[in-house]
Design a protein around this nucleic acid. Structure first.
Length: 707
DNA sequence: AACGAGAGAGTTTTT
DNA sequence: CTCTCTCGTT
């Protein structure tokens, strides 16, 4: 059956899908059927006779690319597996490998993940003896962040320091040297970080005309999704890949740019028509996802942006529940309120149609505790990665050495499991191995016989080049005793992780590809779609491009959202606003915003009062249904009759002020005056009374004193 | 040099 | 809670 484009698409979508040759820019508002449009365009191209293997689809995650190709294939009634799809980084890697002989990279190079890069920054710092005994010298992670930012934005380290890290200006020169040393170490050990992948591909394409030609011959249609999140080098790559044909289609939404922190450049999307003269621009503004009340809210968020965006989304889903704004007493009671909301939503929606979103990974912790108590299955996106677990890194270390014997980080990991070998000795041994100093190596092995086993294992892997699965089996066999000794408490759990790793390895035929994919793509993400009916917990960044029937957004308080670190610079604050926009536009039918009025601060060991996020405060009156948790733990509409605590227990002046429970002094009818030490949600306080000592008292019986 | 205990600090976001 | 660094001991 032929595809009825005009029936399935609205006029704007249709225009984009039917556009054949020449540059095309699609400005796609949130929920405007962007994926649908790309899918139909893919189908249309193939239907018109374009070979699938002439199509390159660059997206933000591999999963997104696969999904689009699958859907297009489904429309056409044929597989589109010939088309290339993936992230910029995975594509760059594949081309660097393919043209390795011209890329000037050795056969075996290793891709560094963040932990590897951090380790190398540390080594560079030690080598240069920077910041010795100076506590103010930026921490390892800060150094890495800075170096990477400079690279991504294509600025000098000094420039980044002056622009964004003003307090580090005294260290600018040192940091600059550090960046240079880091780069030198990478080169010396055949390692590429994420940024290198892109720059190396660009260098290859510019330096080798025949490679560029062959690449251009191969991919005659290039499509790029999430174009607002590309950085400078990615934009140049798109230009190189488009070649003279300029059959290039970029899709994006400037309002959803949330990766400026890693160098994404919104200007790319604005400059696209300049880069590609004759660009056709199509705007998708009809929203098919959310109800009007939700859209009103998200439009309001965007209206507060410093640069005003002209587009305003509209929908035909006029009816729907108003978004809710729930103020809870504390973060712990917020977690319980989330459980109650979930119970309510589950009458209408399946668990997998609901998501809890937050700004940073750790913020979901109290919610996770409650979910575990109730036995509700959930899945967390963004957070600790599978491949970052220590035991996984250990095992991968052996495989990495089989591919790249100069991989210092891998040597260290592997060698430091030998008894009596620490950082220094490991380095020395690795050095003898890397330089082929057989005599030196022998000395070490005589001293520590286990070393010989390790070397034999690695050597065996290098010589036999077994498939990843078999290689992994060999390593795990060797490593299991080490695992049991190192993690006596929880090694069974970790062993399971290794089994998962084996399952991931199974489809791969060579080690290089397996290792590269593990560092470039987050493996947890692929299987996530497969799991049935589990609740999703996700950072907002990881929720990009996804949608749910109901979305719960937690921790909307000052210093958390927007993040405290964004408060200093207006640009950063604007990005936080767009993040808030992205979060709220994930919701189809129901949206609930949670504002805890106090949060437990670990190192102070008590609850601190919190102010609502400015993004909440500026929401127009009446855009949300407001609820507040009383001391009894019950939610009641604001303005309505609240289950009353003692009247004087409501601190602060009446009216619009947010009465956060203050941790000051109070009086009790019997015990007299005392200092409030801790708020024990939902309704109790730990009070140190002047004459009676520590007591735990229900809030109702306390008279709060204003500060 | 290595290692264990212990304190301390500190938590953005990701390819 | 969890990693990271420090310090004292072997």
């Amino acid at each position: 059956m032929p595809i009825d484009y005009a029936e399935d698409l609205n006029p704007a979508q249709l225009a984009a899908a039917l556009h054949a040759e020449g540059p095309l820019l699609v400005i796609a508002g949130a929920g405007s059927g962007k994926t649908r449009t790309i899918v139909y365009r893919l189908a249309r191209l193939v239907e018109q006779g374009t070979r699938p293997d002439h199509i390159l689809l660059l997206t933000f995650t591999r999963k997104a690319a696969q999904e689009m190709l699958t859907r297009a294939g489904y429309l056409l009634g044929m597989g589109l597996s010939q088309a290339a799809g993936g992230t910029f980084h995975s594509f760059a890697y594949s081309q660097l490998r393919r043209y390795a002989e011209f890329a000037g990279l050795g056969k075996g190079f290793t891709i560094m993940d963040r932990a590897d890069a951090a380790q190398m920054v540390k080594e560079a710092r030690e080598k240069l003896a920077l910041g010795k005994g100076d506590k103010a010298f930026p921490k390892r992670d800060t150094c890495l962040e800075l170096v990477s930012k400079a690279r991504n934005k294509e600025l000098s380290v000094e420039q980044v320091v002056t622009n964004e890290y003003f307090h580090l200006v005294p260290y600018a020169e040192d940091l600059s040297r550090l960046a240079a040393e880091y780069a030198a170490l990478k080169r010396a050990h055949g390692m590429l970080d994420y940024d290198d992948l892109l720059f190396e591909l660009e260098r290859l394409l510019l330096a080798e005309a025949h490679v560029r030609k062959s690449v251009n011959e191969r991919w005659r249609f290039v499509m790029v999704d999430e174009y607002q999140d590309t950085n400078l080098v990615q934009a140049r790559l798109v230009k190189l890949l488009a070649g003279e044909r300029m059959n290039v289609c970029a899709v994006g939404d400037d309002a959803q740019s949330i990766y400026a922190f890693r160098g994404a450049n919104v200007a790319n999307i604005l400059d696209f028509p300049k880069t590609f003269p004759g660009t056709r621009i199509v705007s998708l503004e009809q929203n098919y996802r959310s109800t009007q009340p939700i859209l009103d809210l998200t439009n309001a968020i965007l209206a507060g942006a410093r640069e005003k965006y002209e587009k305003r989304l509209f929908t035909e889903r006029a009816n729907g529940a108003k978004p809710e704004l729930v103020r809870t007493l504390s973060d712990a009671s917020q977690a319980r309120a989330v459980m109650e909301k979930l119970a309510e939503l589950r009458r209408e929606y399946a668990l997998h149609e609901i998501a809890v979103l937050f700004r940073a990974g750790y913020q979901s912790y109290p919610v996770e505790l409650e979910l575990n108590k109730l036995g509700l299955p959930f899945q967390k996106y963004g957070g600790i990665r599978f491949t970052e677990a220590a035991h996984v890194k250990d095992v991968l270390g052996y495989l990495r050495l089989a591919v790249n014997p100069a991989d210092l980080a891998a040597w260290r990991r592997v060698l430091e499991h030998v008894k009596g070998v620490g950082a220094k000795t490991a380095l020395a041994i690795a050095q003898t191995a890397i330089t082929g100093d057989a005599a030196g190596l022998k000395k070490h092995t005589l001293k520590r016989p286990v070393l010989a086993d390790i070397l034999r294992l690695v050597e065996g892997l290098r010589n036999d080049r077994p498939e990843p699965r078999a290689a992994l089996a060999r390593v795990v066999e060797f490593y299991t005793p080490v695992l049991m000794e190192t993690y006596p408490d929880d090694y069974p759990r970790r062993q399971q992780g290794l089994d998962e790793l084996a399952a991931l390895a199974a489809p791969y035929r060579d080690l290089e590809g397996f290792l590269a994919d593990l560092s470039i793509e987050n493996p947890g993400e692929d299987e996530s779609g497969a799991r049935e009916d589990t609740l999703v917990l996700s950072t907002i960044h990881s929720a990009k491009g996804l949608e749910w029937k109901a979305v719960l957004l937690i921790d909307l308080v000052e210093d958390r959202f927007p993040s405290r670190r964004a408060m200093g610079r207006p640009e950063d604050l604007e990005e936080e606003r767009r993040l808030m926009y992205v979060a709220c536009t994930r919701a189809r039918d129901r949206l609930t915003l949670f504002v805890p009025e106090s949060i437990y601060v670990r190192h102070l060991e008590r609850h601190e009062p919190m102010r609502p996020s400015p993004f909440v405060l500026e929401l127009p009156h009446g855009s949300c249904l407001e609820l507040r948790e009383g001391f009894g733990g019950r939610l009641s509409p604001v303005g309505g009759p609240a289950r009353s605590p003692a009247p004087s227990a409501v601190p602060g002046p009446g009216g619009s002020g947010a009465p956060a429970p203050k941790l000051g002094f109070c009086t009790h009818k019997i015990y007299g005056r005392g200092k409030i030490i801790e708020h024990i949600p939902p309704d109790k306080y730990r009070v140190n009374f002047q004459h009676f000592g520590l007591k735990v008292i229900v809030g109702q019986y306390l008279q709060m004193e204003d500060a």
